[in-house]
């Protein structure tokens, strides 16, 4: 699949999402319409603070869990997984 000029494709839970360079992974998850994590009691959670403080936006990126997605920019081919085990 060819990248459109000036855009990056990442996958969120296996679904391709096209974003502009400079987009955070947290924004990509919101664009994909998904939550970021499941809370310890099983509730869906999504980004809150947008500045790396609250840890609600943690997702798994390329297999590494607990990544603060609001502080990490999308890179081509990144595999983002949300809705993992409660964490």
């Amino acid at each position: 699949m060819a990248e459109a000029a000036g855009s990056i494709t990442v996958t969120v839970n296996g679904v391709a999402v096209r974003v502009t360079p400079g987009t955070t992974v947290a924004s990509a998850t919101l664009i994909a319409g998904t939550q970021t994590r499941v809370s310890v009691a099983g509730e869906p959670r999504a980004p809150l603070c947008g500045m790396g403080i609250c840890f609600e936006c943690r997702v798994t990126i390329d297999g590494a869990p607990h990544q603060r997605s609001c502080q990490i920019l999308c890179e081509p081919g990144m595999q983002v997984t949300t809705r993992g085990e409660p964490a």
Binding site: G22, A26, I31, R45, P47
Partner: peptide
């Protein structure tokens, strides 16, 4: 307040600057 799409005010601002339409 824990529902997805309830965010900080600055938090939403940062998300928008970080590419959220």
């Amino acid at each position: 307040w824990t529902l997805p799409n309830v965010m900080g005010a600055g938090g939403l601002d940062a998300m928008v600057r970080g590419g959220l339409p």
